[in-house]
Structure formats: C-alpha cells, structure tokens
C-alpha cells in the first residue's frame, strides 16, 4: 500500500491557499515542498489547509518550519488551518506555533 499526498493550490488576490491532504512524510512530500517554493513574489499571505491530512511526520513539519522562516525573510504571512486536534497538539508540542508567533512578532 503506497502512501499518497494530494496538493491543491488556490489563489485569491494576494492570498495563496495550499490544501494538503493524505500523508505528508519522507516519501511523499516532494510535491508539497515544490508548491511552497512556487509561492510567487508579491504574495501577502500563504494559508496551509490541513483539513484532509491523515498523517504528517518530522520531514513534513520541517517543511512548515522552513516556510515560516522563508515568510519572515520574504515578508509574507503564514497561517495554518484545518488541523485535527491531534495535529494541533503535535504542532504545539514540537514548537511550530511558538516559532510562527515569534517570527511574526519579529517581522512586525
């Protein structure tokens, strides 16, 4: 059984929403990284929607953290939404929210 990831991107004005569903792990995450890298200059906000997320491993979390740092460098905002309670707890424990809040307050 092969794990699958599905990525869809929607652009509205200066906001880019990336819908991530399925399994985001070491073996599947290349399309996710590609989508993050493809965020165009001039984008004001990137929203990553995890509503259809089944599983995320440390490599996937690393991509989110790298996105947060890139957003700080390139001056755009990042928002995570649609997480399950379990994913929310995982992000909180590892420090994803703390990193995003600290970088955003530094960037203001």
């Amino acid at each position: 059984m092969e794990d699958m990831i599905n990525i869809e991107t929607k652009k509205e004005g200066n906001t880019c929403t990336i819908f991530v569903s399925g399994v985001v792990d070491y073996s599947t995450m290349d399309p996710f990284i590609k989508e993050i890298r493809a965020v165009e200059r001039g984008t004001a906000e990137v929203i990553v929607n995890f509503k259809g997320l089944e599983f995320i491993d440390s490599t996937g979390i690393g991509a989110i953290i790298n996105l947060a740092h890139e957003a700080n460098d390139k001056q755009f905002a990042v928002k995570l939404e649609g997480m399950s309670e379990e994913t929310n707890e995982l992000f909180d424990m590892i420090g994803v929210f703390q990193i995003m809040q600290t970088l955003q307050s530094e960037g203001q």
Partner: peptide, 29 residues
C-alpha cells in the same frame, strides 16, 4: 525541546505522562 513526554509507570501498574514542560525543538529559534 519539542519531544513527546515520557511515561511513568509504578508498581501498581498506574501509568501517566510526565508533567508537561514546553520548549521549542533544537534548530527552531
């Protein structure tokens, strides 16, 4: 530093997580 909480089990088979202590992972900030 962002790791899952260890567990503690006693001789009566009671088991619980360590009290939460938060910190960001190494390389985060």
């Amino acid at each position: 530093a962002g790791h899952n909480s260890p567990l503690i089990v006693n001789a009566n088979k009671d088991i619980r997580e360590f009290p939460k202590v938060k910190g960001v992972m190494l390389g985060g900030l």
